[in-house]
Design a protein around this nucleic acid. Sequence first.
DNA 1: TAGATTGTTAATCGATTAACAATC
DNA 2: TAGATTGTTAATCGATTAACAATC
Lengths: 211, 211
Amino acid sequence: MNSNVVISKRQLERYPMYLKFLIFIKKNGVVNISSSIIAREMKCSEEQVRKDFQAISKNAGKCHLGRNVDEMIRDLKDFLGYNKTAEAVLIGVGNLGKALLHYSGFASYGLKILAAFDVKEDIVGTNINGTPVYDISDLKDQIALLNVKTAILVTPASAAQETVDLLVQSGITAIWNFVSIHLQVPDNIIIENVDLAASLAKLTYQHNKIC
Amino acid sequence: MNSNVVISKRQLERYPMYLKFLIFIKKNGVVNISSSIIAREMKCSEEQVRKDFQAISKNAGKCHLGRNVDEMIRDLKDFLGYNKTAEAVLIGVGNLGKALLHYSGFASYGLKILAAFDVKEDIVGTNINGTPVYDISDLKDQIALLNVKTAILVTPASAAQETVDLLVQSGITAIWNFVSIHLQVPDNIIIENVDLAASLAKLTYQHNKIC
DNA sequence: TAGATTGTTAATCGATTAACAATC
DNA sequence: TAGATTGTTAATCGATTAACAATC
């Protein structure tokens, strides 16, 4: 892995796609694979595939052979941090919050949700899929206690901004935001928005072009 | 709106962000706004803001004034199709599927889920937030009956590929995919992946850079 | 060997930003 | 008017693709 190479956001979006494809192809018994085949299957250029893997791979590809699928999977998982645990808290145990707490994929991404928070009395004190649910008033103390820096924001829109403010005060530095409103966040806080509206817009726009 | 302008995917991703920001700023009583202020708040360039709105706006901006917030919101909603209903079916009424059926945001995006499908006997025949749940064996007939072209895929990973095949056979031409595996789809089918792994990778990569 | 495949360097393409005239 | 803001045209930047030598 060449750690002084800069990885662009577009590249970052591609790595999980490569990983999915390689897991798929490995199931089919493929041991080595060339960039040209990956490119054809994933509808991109082979030069891009080669450059993307050069940036994160421990070994060079082999002429005539391509790369080893297992090594590629290992390098992708290492780069994406799936082999070390990232800890987070989750705020807002509504329908989506519950679904995320039950989502088994996070474990394979190395993401562990240590605690969840809500205001609803009937849910505080329960345990969802191994994660305890605390009252929002315990947020600051728990974040300090758990020494966690990442929060998953899944509150109702009406509570999102005040929750962000509270998270920032509590020492959270990275927010994975599932709430679909404009949020004001200090410059030193990383926020990544899961924007379903944007995803749907891309689907609809392309669909309307062909219909 | 200049309909022969090509809108790039990156632009499409920005429009919902503008909309959220404008809804936020409208709540604060702002009537007109300049591209420079939008750019500062949204951390992009003012030229980009102007070009993005030129591409979708019915009226030109006004010197000295900027643009009218209400008009921008209207034009964004028109462009994004929020004022006309897009119909879809949803496949897989697990935790995430249920959360999506309860998600109130879709209504504001003009998305209406007409029917849901699953294999689990205890859930087939029920009604979730107004949407009836049918057995997967009724999928083809219902899609024909409802004349729907878009499907939301939220099945377990193990059932995703066979479900895609079934959807394609049933005449679905657009798939909004929430399942995190590599799927094989004919070239004439539009598929848009909601890739939580990619989103999380972006958050983590940026966070690790500053920590 | 021949040919498939790599990695690197150069060229191209597309998107973003800069510059600036037009305008109210 | 002066100055703020627009829209357009040109320049820049970054990412992607093409070309090609190296290699097993």
